[in-house]
Design a protein around this nucleic acid. Structure first.
Length: 560
RNA sequence: UGGUGGAUGGUGUAAUGGUAACACAGAAGAUUUUGGUUCUUUUAUUCAGGGUUCGAGUCCUUGUCCGCCAACCA
């Protein structure tokens, strides 16, 4: 313990957000206060991209002695639902973060309504009766200025009366909006009199039917930040053009000046990261649900076997900057391997069995072998593994004709069975189709693991399972969901690139110790990969998800 | 073509005018009762041209390429 504090504290360079905060702290900008917020819209499940934002917002606040609010940006009742609220809260906590306040933009509907009135009275907002098509035409284009709405010059009194009637439900959906009166020639299209309130006769998941007018994002977000006195409002790059409007509202309303800062969102190879697309995958049943282990959602990764630690580590390693990026998914895989290597107990499971008969081992005899649960953990303990005359080994651990550097079984070749004996392959049996169906081997009696006096050195060590005690388990092997690295530049619809073989279900044969596993428990199946017990499991039908395979240097060599 | 934000190895992130660093991926080797882990070694004239400077990835300038913005979505 004391050693840790002695270690030279490696000066890790600050990301640009941390630099801004330190600068603000130096200038005593908010009296040393740091308050961030994580503001998801409850219209879908959180994904690994949100994890980056969560780690940033909570992480940076933690680092500087501040806090973070969880705020649901629920200004659009037609897409939002409490199901999503619950999953989001669960995911944030699972990642290891705790918010100081749980807020909802809808908590502020009354205040927001008052703010709208303020703007109206200042002559800075007006009720428009243009259709959305007309409004689009008024907008102009990036190269041509827009034109004023014919309703733009109504008096504040007129506007207030109209707005109240909107609120009272006197107008049909789509017939009126409240618009900020800014500049139809503004170079920033967002500033060309943006709609800030619209009519929706929709049931809201929290406010029910109290309202039939709802604020737009731009009229809710900055004000919500301001109401909560958020010091640093961190969002993604696509909101850069909105910053002008964010500041405009705060300035005209003369409220607490929260500031918006933008960073580049996460993109990952071989997957998509937009809620719209993820929703499509779910709805069209390309996956089994938001928590399908192939999904880049937090719930999917969790079910896949990812740990919060590994995801936080990943977010830490990818950094924070303002340039677009496409992170190699192998970095995520590295992070989960790194963590699981330290904490996951080892088990032996044969995924593609080939029977081996030890011809010199007494029939019916069971011998107990002992194996360490985790070589990386000296306190991990040991477990018993039954050994007998008939065992399974992996089918690809035998070759009739062995290539040069093949250290496994082949006629005449010797290997060690992990935690048991060295065996020698004497013979093999084929079926009529020419497939090898059985190996005949002899075991070296004085070669037992831990008390080996044989003096024999073998290059290969195999995992194995005793046939009699073998426990059949279902194994779900996952591969990347898409076949192309970069979906953003891929031709055609993203669904054309779905990997048809992203899931393979097989039956594996496990050592009996695995029977005790609890749902979510994570193991390394030796020489195969990391697996965790899926919630679909029952007492006599265990289902394991492959989280990630082990690095396979032989596989690469063999492929050549 | 209007506005706006970018550009550093295959992928990310640093270097805040002073030796281009770290990680992942790849390659080679050592160790290993997991072909895992661990440990070595290896991989860049910083988008291009011009300028300022003793010195430029960093400052200035011109150009090129990429992202985002014309929802009553967030």
């Amino acid at each position: 313990m004391s050693e840790i504090s002695k270690e030279p504290t490696e000066e890790k360079s600050l990301n640009f957000i941390e630099q801004i905060i330190e600068e603000d702290l130096r200038n005593n900008k908010h009296g040393g206060r740091v308050l961030t917020r994580f503001p998801p819209e409850p219209n879908g499940y959180l994904h690994i991209g949100h994890a980056k934002s969560i780690c940033l917002n909570f992480g940076v606040a933690q680092k500087y002695g501040g806090g973070t609010n969880l705020r649901f940006d629920d200004t659009n009742p037609v897409t939002e639902d409490t199901e999503y609220v619950d999953s989001i809260k669960n995911d944030v906590q699972w990642l290891g973060f705790q918010w100081v306040n749980e807020f909802y933009a809808s908590d502020y509907f009354d205040s927001l309504y008052e703010y709208a009135l303020v703007l109206i009275r200042k002559g800075l907002a007006y009720v428009d009766e243009s259709t959305s098509e007309q409004m689009a035409a008024q907008k102009g284009t990036p190269t041509e200025p827009g034109t004023n709405s014919p309703y733009r010059d109504r008096t504040p009194e007129e506007n207030e009366a109209l707005f109240v009637r909107m609120k009272n439900g006197e107008f049909a959906e789509g017939t009126r909006t409240l618009r900020a009166k800014i500049d139809m020639a503004a170079p920033n299209m967002i500033m060309r009199d943006p709609v800030i309130y619209r009519i929706k006769f929709a049931h809201h998941h929290r406010t029910g039917d109290k309202w039939c007018i709802y604020p737009m994002y731009d009229f809710a977000h900055g004000q919500s930040d301001s109401i909560e006195k958020i010091t640093h409002s961190i969002c993604t790059l696509e909101f850069i053009p909105h910053r002008d409007l964010y500041d405009w509202c705060i300035e005209k309303l003369e409220i607490f000046p929260s500031k918006q800062y933008e960073f580049a969102r996460l993109n990952l190879t071989y997957t998509v990261m937009s809620k719209r697309k993820l929703l499509q995958l779910v709805n069209e049943q390309h996956v089994t649900g938001w928590d399908d282990p192939r999904m880049p959602t937090i719930s999917g990764l969790r079910r896949r076997g990812y740990t919060p630690e590994s995801i936080r580590e990943f977010c830490d390693r990818i950094g924070v900057a303002r340039r677009d990026n496409l992170i190699d998914v192998s970095l995520l895989e590295f992070c989960i391997r790194e963590h699981l290597n330290k904490v996951a107990e080892r088990r032996m499971v044969v995924l593609d069995p080939l029977k081996v008969i030890l011809t010199n081992f007494p029939e019916g005899q069971v011998e107990i072998c002992h194996s360490e649960n985790n070589p990386e953990d000296p306190n991990g303990g040991i477990r018993d593994i039954p050994f007998g005359r008939e065992i399974y080994v992996e089918r690809d651990d035998f070759m009739e004709v062995a290539p040069k550097k093949y250290f496994r079984l082949a006629p005449g070749q010797m290997v060690r069975l992990k935690s048991a004996y060295i065996i020698k392959c004497d013979d093999f049996v084929k079926d009529e189709a020419g497939n090898v169906i059985e190996l005949h081997c002899t075991y070296i009696e004085n070669s037992k693991s831990g008390s080996d006096t044989s003096g024999i050195n073998v290059k290969g060590t195999l995992h194995w399972v005793s046939v009699k005690e073998a426990l059949p388990i279902e194994i779900r092997e996952y591969d990347r969901l898409f076949t192309v690295e970069d979906l953003s530049t891929a031709e055609g619809d993203f669904k054309e690139h779905i990997n048809p073989n992203s899931l393979q279900v097989i039956t594996g044969y496990a050592e009996p110790a695995l029977k005790e596993a609890a749902v979510g428990a994570k193991f390394q199946f030796m020489r195969k990969g990391y697996f965790c017990l899926d919630p679909d499991s029952t007492a006599d039908h265990l289902v394991f998800n492959r989280t990630v395979g082990l690095k396979d240097t032989w596989g690469k060599v063999a492929a050549k």
